[in-house]
Design a protein around this nucleic acid. Sequence first.
DNA 1: TATGAATGAGGGTTCATTCAT
DNA 2: AATGAATGAACCCTCATTCAT
Lengths: 217, 217, 217, 217
Amino acid sequence: MKIFYPLFIPMNAPPTPREAPNRRHEQSEERRRRILDGARACFGEAGFAGATVGRIAERAGVSNGLLYRHFRNKEHLFEVVLAEIIGDWVRAMVPSRRNEPAADALEGMFRRSVDFCRDHPLLPALLRDDRQLQLTRISAASHDRIQPHRDLVASILRRGMAAGELRADLDVPSIADVICQLQSDYSGRAYRRDPDHPDAPEIIDAAVSMVRRAVIA
Amino acid sequence: MKIFYPLFIPMNAPPTPREAPNRRHEQSEERRRRILDGARACFGEAGFAGATVGRIAERAGVSNGLLYRHFRNKEHLFEVVLAEIIGDWVRAMVPSRRNEPAADALEGMFRRSVDFCRDHPLLPALLRDDRQLQLTRISAASHDRIQPHRDLVASILRRGMAAGELRADLDVPSIADVICQLQSDYSGRAYRRDPDHPDAPEIIDAAVSMVRRAVIA
Amino acid sequence: MKIFYPLFIPMNAPPTPREAPNRRHEQSEERRRRILDGARACFGEAGFAGATVGRIAERAGVSNGLLYRHFRNKEHLFEVVLAEIIGDWVRAMVPSRRNEPAADALEGMFRRSVDFCRDHPLLPALLRDDRQLQLTRISAASHDRIQPHRDLVASILRRGMAAGELRADLDVPSIADVICQLQSDYSGRAYRRDPDHPDAPEIIDAAVSMVRRAVIA
Amino acid sequence: MKIFYPLFIPMNAPPTPREAPNRRHEQSEERRRRILDGARACFGEAGFAGATVGRIAERAGVSNGLLYRHFRNKEHLFEVVLAEIIGDWVRAMVPSRRNEPAADALEGMFRRSVDFCRDHPLLPALLRDDRQLQLTRISAASHDRIQPHRDLVASILRRGMAAGELRADLDVPSIADVICQLQSDYSGRAYRRDPDHPDAPEIIDAAVSMVRRAVIA
DNA sequence: TATGAATGAGGGTTCATTCAT
DNA sequence: AATGAATGAACCCTCATTCAT
């Protein structure tokens, strides 16, 4: 069975500086970086509509106008931020060892995803709900990141079923959907520090064990 | 065992008409109603930031200013809408029969919640994530609706454990959290019609069966 | 010979208040008026691009936002201003007596146009050159006002030729074009007080006599 | 009779290269040239306000900043462009033969002006109306170019009157004004291709014949 | 009670100009 | 001399909120 791991193409790698980078270019690049960081934080805190360009620039310590040298407009900036985050997240999540039992692979993914989101100042909050963000125009983003995630989970499930480790009667696409949903939920919690949606270890454990119990033979 | 069903205190009951309601008062009350309906629709479609008071008033067929006679401001209006919706949702969700097996009670709740959200033009989208809505100031709302929901689920779990229907080693608060999370997720999907987050019956079934398997003895 | 005088339909007559106008409505109407006056002045001085809504509002003594209650946007405001001005101008210019000699009719029109523009705080400056104003989207405006003007002049010319008062070999459309051009020029001068383009009486006389000499038999 | 032909003082002659022009200087000069050409095109297309420095630099194939080494600011650049154009225009317009009849001289000037503007990708549109261009600060430019033009026409008129070719009772300054006005009008038309202000040959002919008839004895 | 005209702060965006390199 | 990244003021426009009627 062919497993197809490499999910996402990194969309917004910084333009490869093939010439020796001079000071100017370096500084510019660093400011672009700071803008993206500021945008991550602001979008993460306030959502797309709530974040303001002015605030982002301020946070990045640059002028209002500079933002528009690096990004077409607010929406474009948001797209780039999203793409970056997804790239990071996926890299953190992907199974490290290929031969581990399927249930362990799922649990590993789950926990790595949560841990990544906890440690990283980023916005998995935005990983879920484009509708709220009035970003219907950014349609690709949502689809592009969700389906591959499900496919990855599904491939692990199928591998486990083939190996006899998992129940044989799983409705793979549906179960994969639910697992991904839970993973998104608790990854998101790890970032937001909403006391109403805690990410206490025992809750994560409960989610993980629910997943295990649902799939194991 | 005492089961404590009445979860929510109605927050914004219409001011109790202690005098015999004359015409004026009646009409006023009806307009308040229309404003709330318009707000539900608008907030549901565009989120908090995206909805405008002008639009809401227009939809309600009243003037812009009247809105401010009935509600302190946009935020307050939103709070009231939220509270109302949660009331409706809870009423729809609460177990009908008291003596059914715990697992069935959970499943029933799950499905009723999803169905309610599907049939009702309302905004369970908003049930989850105040942060997105820039409503950090509305902290109470979130807490008030989420904890009671978990308590309800927890009480069912405990009943089932006491009755020997469910596993004895459940970490009740944590499992309740996960179950509520899933229920919110798929209820939300039922309202939004995001093709990337479908609410196909088999997916709902998968979620339900995952829950059952997690708790059943 | 049929003469077709009524050229322009007044486009932006204030919405006829068929009900007894209360104070509120009156004040609103007056503010709309003030905005239009401010806009006339600002557009007249600075052109479309150069005029700013902020400046116009300030000049009208109202808030920035009010402008957008009365007009869709800057462009719409400009259109209305233009239409008003043209209406005024046309009414001022149109021949009063029907039976006067053609050459006198032309001269009368010419002088009335100039006088109107001199006395009136308006912007015939804008009567000529949409291109400068980057108003390609307002294409109709230009055409709608210029051709009728020429037609009016042409009809007078033809009447004079038929009556034997004017030379029989006139190239009517071309001569009409030149006459209108001159009339626009010196009407515009009357408004702008550019010392480099004076509107001294003897210059107007020179223009008028040039026109007479060109057409008279 | 003294005829005073050399009308305009070249305002912005390139800084006289008093040293043998080395490579550096040559290249610099060529870039200045390219900037001016780009500016001509941009101002011509979009007017002063509509043209942007960035666009001009891009069109000239130089950097944004270089523009400010050669010109004080956008306004200065515009002044220089204007002066250049006027120089070109005047050279094209000036009577070639000194002894031709005055009326022919006028007609020749008229037609050469129109032809020049038609053939040349430049901005006689801007020849008339500084006010529109928000360039009230550039007052000199306007005066410097208009009065000499009138003087030239006046001198031809006086010559014709002295020679008995033209009517003896002409109000020379006034007639000169009108002639110059017409000439500007139709020269401008030749450049702009506004269908509402055509420059068809028969219209030009009509204008020319109007002028002739106005002055001829 | 109900209206909707009026306000004005703040939104995203552009662009003339400067200055370190 | 030449670059182009960076600035920030000013642009048009929206919309939550107030208040005279």
